[in-house]
Nucleic acid binder design. Structure first.
Lengths: 246, 246
DNA sequence: TACTTGATGTGGTTGGACCACATCCCTTAG
DNA sequence: CTAAGGGATGTGGTCCAACCACATCAAGTA
């Protein structure tokens, strides 16, 4: 009856074993960024598990933004280690927003918190800040709404990166991604897009100016007002709203 | 060049299709928290895909903390919808720390930021705050180091929850989980655990007192000093963080 | 009534098969 | 000699048909 004592006392699923092995390889440095995992069939034989279990583990790592799977042959093929923490956090947040377990208002509030902190600590000599300035100019000469919004996303992301904290940057990006579809629908509610766009441009300029004037406190306040103002104008109540349906 | 962009969107892998279907069910409310997914074989037939693809999608959702798979029969069996955002974020962060893409110092800094913010706006009538007080008493009468640390984790999590922001709570928990093994090793470096424990107890009391005195600013400062002091004493060089002004 | 025992349904795991794709390398035509 | 075929090879992507371990439930039995 107890043909397998180990499994009974230590019920670890097979794909978790593979995950653990890969995570160890990553921690020990034997698998580094840009490195390639063994082929699925090879890895399955090495670990004495089925290819299915190996694939399930790789799926999880792929969803976590740790690896990228590519078919074919050559340098672009195979399963290679990447680093995209934003993908994992964004997907997770989006899914839990879908279950109504994470209110959209909380996401917006957290974004305000992180981005305010980031601009307050932004270094004026940061490359990310230079990129933000460049993006701001592009937005001035951009008549298309969708393109403007895309640039807006990159602008705010650049602001977050200016603080030099990779975790904050990743979280900022994931928060953006999690409510992207939501924000898109809110934008449709705006009564006068041209006026709003003009206001956003002006506020962007003020934020950047405050940072460059080494007035982090003012920059943080402007960012908070900028974000909250946008969502408020589009109809999202602050922290009381029910995100049940889109 | 742009054709790659199009190709990136068009050929959707089979498990992503399943993922999308389930996410739609969640968004529309047809699948709610505590609800059960169709059986894997049934779902495979419904969506006209193989059971393998269904399983890969479920694996991802499981890693994201959205579902829990249980074998057997009865109410506890099957794949049921849960809500554990901390699991997903924690795993993702831990994996990216393993790839050295997310510095531990950045994680600590982010934790200081979030927890400072949380205690600064903690509501004194929050149930989480009452739990924190209860945990504090337990820690006073706890001689065991490991148990003390476990209570410490729950104490700080309760503080984070007192702000009433689910996203911040989830992120706090995930940050803790991501560096848990790291923190454990650091604790071993402490020269005099008893002295450190006594200091931690005192600081916990001060933090809670500041919150109950409605002095959020002081509480935030105490939390920042509390966390940074611990890691500094254990030998982790901190990023200079100043979450004072938001 | 109380207990045993199979039936049923669930996820967990495996091996094999085939496909589409991308590269590499050898052959062959010029 | 060069350059254009065209397999050979290796990769992940997908599917299928089993089998196992487990947990519950219902029918049958003492």
């Amino acid at each position: 009856m107890w043909s397998n004592h180990i499994k009974y006392h230590w019920p670890m699923r097979t794909h978790q074993l593979v995950l653990q092995w890969i995570e160890n390889q990553l921690s020990s440095g034997e698998l580094a960024l840009g490195g390639r995992l063994p082929a699925e069939r090879t890895l399955a034989e090495q670990l004495q598990v089925s290819r299915t279990s190996v694939r399930e583990a790789i799926r999880i790592l792929e969803a976590m933004g740790v690896v990228r799977a590519g078919v074919g042959s050559g340098p672009d093929a195979g399963t290679v280690v990447i680093a995209d923490p934003t993908a994992a956090l964004g997907s997770a947040l989006r899914l839990h927003v879908a279950t109504s377990h994470l209110p959209v208002a909380d996401i917006v509030q957290t974004r305000v918190l992180l981005e305010s902190w980031a601009v307050a600590r932004a270094r004026t000599d940061s490359p990310a800040l230079a990129e933000a300035a460049s993006l701001l100019e592009k937005m001035d000469a951009c008549p298309d709404t969708d393109e403007f919004l895309a640039l807006d996303v990159r602008f705010h992301l650049a602001l977050a990166e200016a603080a030099g904290n990779a975790v904050v940057s990743a979280m900022m990006g994931s928060l953006r991604e999690a409510i992207q579809s939501y924000a898109g629908k809110l934008t449709a509610n705006l009564p006068d897009w041209d006026a709003t766009a003009a206001r956003l441009r002006a506020e962007h300029r003020d934020i950047l100016a405050a940072i460059n004037n080494h007035d982090g406190g003012r920059a943080a306040g402007l960012v908070a007002a900028h974000i909250e103002g946008y969502y408020k104008e589009a109809g999202l109540g602050p922290k009381d709203s029910d995100p049940a349906r889109l």
